[in-house]
Design a protein around this nucleic acid. Sequence first.
DNA 1: TAGGATCCACTGGTGGATCCGT
DNA 2: ACGGATCCACCAGTGGATCCTA
Lengths: 229, 229
Amino acid sequence: MAPADDACTESRIAALLDRARGLTGMRVGELATSLGVHSGGDAVRTKGTPGAILELALGATGGSSKVHDFPELGVELKTIPVDLRGVPVESTYVCTLSLGDAEMQEWEDSWVRAKLALVLFVPLVAGDGEPWPERRIAEPVLWSPTREQDDVLRSDFDDVVGLIGVGRIEELTAHRGRWLQVRPKAAHGRVRTVAWGSEGEAIATIPRGFYLRTRFTGAILGDPRAMPD
Amino acid sequence: MAPADDACTESRIAALLDRARGLTGMRVGELATSLGVHSGGDAVRTKGTPGAILELALGATGGSSKVHDFPELGVELKTIPVDLRGVPVESTYVCTLSLGDAEMQEWEDSWVRAKLALVLFVPLVAGDGEPWPERRIAEPVLWSPTREQDDVLRSDFDDVVGLIGVGRIEELTAHRGRWLQVRPKAAHGRVRTVAWGSEGEAIATIPRGFYLRTRFTGAILGDPRAMPD
DNA sequence: TAGGATCCACTGGTGGATCCGT
DNA sequence: ACGGATCCACCAGTGGATCCTA
């Protein structure tokens, strides 16, 4: 689960970071064009496109339903929208929370921990209301949680799965969690998934995802070892 | 589970049958054109299209994941390819067989029995190798199993779920069943679903579907009360 | 300002069946 | 002849995230 650390993998990760640095200063629309991707038309509505563009540009091979964007390197790629000062303007989606088997889940073996073990953050600088093709790629940050950070994330995680494990999913709001929070994740608010109530009964509820709070990603972009509130 | 039989439903079913009769003699391609459906280009490869055309033409509203094509009438629509003599050239797909809970399934409440409770067969006459737009719609047959036919189908069904229930799914071949058989049902042969072995262990296996044998559909097209081999 | 709601692209699985080698 | 393999259309669900109102 820890990032692979043999010499070959290390050098390939370094090469990936170099490639990401090489994109610094480009507009996302330019990058899209150079990749042969159509970036015209309605630009505001396509929320996920810049992330897909960066995956293409850096050669992410994970595709869907894989744990990491770069499976062989154990690296997760995350674009993160920042303002002109470099401060994140949004929380960062990590992955889906499986509600059906929450009581089985341990932090050590969790999907969310695997995702966060080694993350390449690529900040995208957006002026106010600027469509994504105009956003500029900023200096990337390769981050792996310190032991202290991992402990806080584990605590947030345990709180969440503990609640679900005893069937109190209704108390699972985005207020919980110091750095890692849980929020709804559904295209139309009409999707339902199954969870288990306190009496063991099946209940239909909206799917949820793990998100990193803005205050946390903002701090680690400045100092990867930061311990914000 | 039995077809609804109040007077209003009966008259609506009769109207449906009349509409189907009104299509007799048309080519499927003509019908598609009159519905504004594109039927040009590669015609041989689109196996499911004629079925969808007839659903449209007759106003089927079931859509996907519904039990029947006409939920309010309890009617299932099946196109069936026949030769110039009116003899079926293929078996008829009924529905998917759920492998995960086979031991729970009873014929009385089964999906396959619900589908077969009241079927509108629409034969499509195909010359040898003729693409579907050239096929002609023949006289439709509205069929509901007689008590004797239902008993045979139940027997075939019980044999199948019995085998699966004791974890002997490997013995479940298309050789079994007098009229109702089970065959693989997967787009590429690479899809897998879960079943339970004789020791209760989970095993990955290919999805299966129920099919009516050609000899059975051939007989009931001629005489709905037939009892073929 | 941040918690809850929502948007688009993509794709795997399902429903419509027929193909085709032995 | 028929048992096993396969084909296309369609859509709900997932992964990429940001929007938006109280």
